[in-house]
Amino acid sequence: MAPDDDPHADHLTHYLCIGCPLGCRLEVEEDDHGDVLEVRGFDCKKGKEYGRQEHTEPKRMVTTTVAVRGGLHARVPVKTREAVPKPLVREVCRALGTVELTAPVAIGTLVMGDVLGTGVDIIVTRDMPEGAPTRAAQRG
């Protein structure tokens, strides 16, 4: 899908679609004003949307962990319910750095609402039953 002989090469940007593991090679063509004219190379609707989105306002899902007191493990995984603007990824993680939950915690529990004013919630992605943080300590 190389743009070798394409007369519009100046207006083309290439992306690797991350919508699914197929990794389609997308080609986004913009007009002289920087508006998206066309997205090509996608296999599904998702790819088309991703190409446009990635070109205009890239977004990412954030997955990280927060501390949990008295749980089976020391950390519980969390995620943004929807994707947030790409430049905010690190800040979202920093914002979660001081959070500590207490076990038991159920999947879907709200950890933080409207993170950094994005309108996106942070939720827990698994049940964390009570237990000593390590199995070894459990026996002790």
Partner: peptide
């Protein structure tokens, strides 16, 4: 803990723990 699981099976994007 990352996402990208379940698109084929559950038709939605899940994290590993959610899938499990």
């Amino acid at each position: 803990i990352h996402n990208g699981f379940g698109l084929h099976h559950f038709k939605e994007e899940l994290t590993g723990p959610e899938y499990a």
